[in-house]
Every structure is written in structure tokens, then in C-alpha cells.
């Protein structure tokens, strides 16, 4: 783990409130260093998406607000920045549920992703890079994006985010609703993108997929980070194995035991 100076993204003690009353994040700290893949695990409602919104400045759309703490990107505070400034600074995101522009063509989706890229040659280079990463998109360039398969749509969504040549890529559940084979492809692509020099913050429920490619990982529950460590450490962790990977010490669990789930957590607050 690098020094603080290496931190590309630094979230410090962030608290987020929706509609002035609903406290979703209760002091979350998290760091992504240059060149890392960091995974963020958590069940539904843990606050994963909210954390991403806090980073990208999309909270305002949902009437949310950072009430405490700070988000720094490349050492600069970015928690009250305009979302477009953040994209320009080098943070792109793939939103949960893909959120491609279904009525636009594949090419138009990619052009929308390159909105902040003013330089034509850079935009063309970005486009070529996306086409190399996702050869399946090339023959479908002129097709309406909404009619593609879920896997292709996810690839388009990732491609669209890469068009801005980000330094940090935020991925919100890219494996959602996809077949295991496609999930594997996606995780390979994430690794490739990372090797090409983009740091990744990967939010996932598919713990196996996330931990197998992550350098480090955090576990978020009820708006708090309850565990963190390297990917390998967490893969070996008994609690993670039991609650996120579904394998207990005695092999597969019976559903009869699920009732005692909450009580048995060793870290429970």
C-alpha cells in the first residue's frame, strides 16, 4: 500500500444525508492509489452507490448532500464540484444498471462519452481503444443501443466511460444481471484497462469476481466500512467467505442457518 501522496482518490470520513434526514453514509473513509484496482463490497442498501455519487457529484440529482468529511482527487478537494468538472479532471463512471442511452446508436453513445474531450485526435484515439477492447461493438456501431444484449450494453457502458480516457474508473455493479461467462469477460476487461494505466474502484455484490481481481477491498455495511484488506486476504477471511461467498467453514451452508446470519457476524457494530 502506497503512501498518502500516491492516493489518487481519497475519501475521508464522509457522511451523506438524503432529503436532510436520511443518513446513509456514517463516516466512510477509503483510498484508491494510482494503478490499483480497489473493490467495494456490500449488500443492498449498504450505501455503495451513494458513496459513488458522493465522489462524482451526482448526489444533488438525488437531493443528497455531503454533510461531513471530504473527497480529494489528485490532492484537490472535489466534494462540491460540478459533475462535469470531475469528468474533465479524469474520473469516469459506469452507473448501476448500465444506463446507456437506449434510443441512441452505439456510436452516438460513445460520442456522448467523449463529450468532455475537445481534441479530435484524442477522441479518435479513445474510440479506437474502445473498439479494440470491445471488438463485439464494432459491427454494431450504427445500431440502436437499446436493442443490444445485456452483455453488449454493459460493454458499451464501460466503453462510453473510457472514451474520456479517465485516470480513475468507477464501476457500479458491472456484473449485475449478466451470465457467468460474460462476467468473466468483464473482469478480464477491467484487468486490461487497469494494466493500461487506469485505476479502478469496483463496486460489486459479486464478491468472488471482485476480490479475484482487486488489489485491495473494502466491505461496506450500513454506511460504515467494516473491513478492509488485500483481495487475497479478504478471499480467505472466514466472514467474507460465509456472508459474501456463501461458503462457511464446514463447506456449503444450509439455508436453515441463514436466520442466525446477523447475530453471528464477528464484526457487527
Amino acid at each position: 500500500m502506497g503512501e498518502r501522496a500516491d492516493a489518487l482518490l481519497d475519501v475521508r470520513n464522509v457522511e451523506v444525508v438524503y432529503n436532510d434526514v436520511i443518513l446513509v453514509l456514517r463516516g466512510v473513509s477509503l483510498r484508491v492509489d494510482r494503478g490499483e484496482i480497489v473493490a467495494l463490497l456490500g449488500a443492498n442498501g449498504a450505501g455503495k452507490t451513494t458513496l459513488l455519487r458522493a465522489i462524482t457529484g451526482l448526489l444533488e440529482v438525488h437531493r443528497g448532500q455531503i454533510t461531513k468529511g471530504a473527497v480529494h482527487f489528485k490532492g484537490e478537494p472535489v466534494d462540491h464540484e460540478d459533475p462535469s468538472k470531475l469528468v474533465r479532471a479524469g474520473v469516469s463512471q459506469v452507473m448501476e444498471g448500465r444506463r446507456i442511452f437506449a434510443e441512441l446508436t452505439v456510436d452516438e453513445n460513445l460520442k456522448a462519452g467523449a463529450y468532455t474531450v475537445r481534441d479530435k485526435t484524442k477522441a479518435a484515439a479513445g474510440y479506437e481503444r474502445v473498439m479494440e477492447l470491445f471488438p463485439a461493438l464494432r459491427p454494431r456501431r450504427g445500431d440502436t443501443a437499446g436493442y443490444m444484449s445485456g452483455g453488449e450494453q454493459q460493454m458499451l457502458a464501460i466503453g462510453r466511460a473510457l472514451m474520456a480516457s479517465p485516470q480513475l474508473l468507477l464501476l457500479d455493479e458491472p456484473s449485475l444481471g449478466l451470465a457467468p461467462l460474460i462476467v468473466e469477460q468483464i473482469s478480464e476487461i477491467i484487468t486490461t484497462v487497469n494494466e493500461q494505466g487506469t485505476s479502478v474502484l469496483l463496486v460489486e455484490q459479486n464478491a468472488h469476481m471482485a476480490l479475484s481481481i482487486a488489489d485491495r477491498a473494502y466491505v461496506l455495511e450500513n454506511g460504515r466500512i467494516v473491513k478492509d484488506g488485500t483481495g487475497a486476504e479478504l478471499l480467505d477471511d472466514d466472514d467474507i467467505r460465509e456472508f459474501y461467498l456463501g461458503v462457511g467453514e464446514a463447506g456449503r451452508k444450509s439455508f436453515r442457518d441463514v436466520k442466525s446470519y446477523r447475530r453471528r457476524k464477528r464484526w457487527s457494530a
Partner: peptide, 23 residues
């Protein structure tokens, strides 16, 4: 044009358009 695509994108998914850095 760039702004034309941005207009259509904003229409179909406001939030996703903002996430692309569209003003």
C-alpha cells in the same frame, strides 16, 4: 454535432448524461 448528441442524451437519461460530463 456534439451539442446535438448531448441534447438527445440529456432527454433520454438526464443523470447518465450528467455522468458523462455533459453540461
Amino acid at each position: 454535432t456534439r451539442i446535438g448528441i448531448a441534447m438527445r442524451a440529456t432527454h433520454f437519461d438526464h443523470e447518465a448524461a450528467i455522468a458523462q460530463g455533459i453540461s
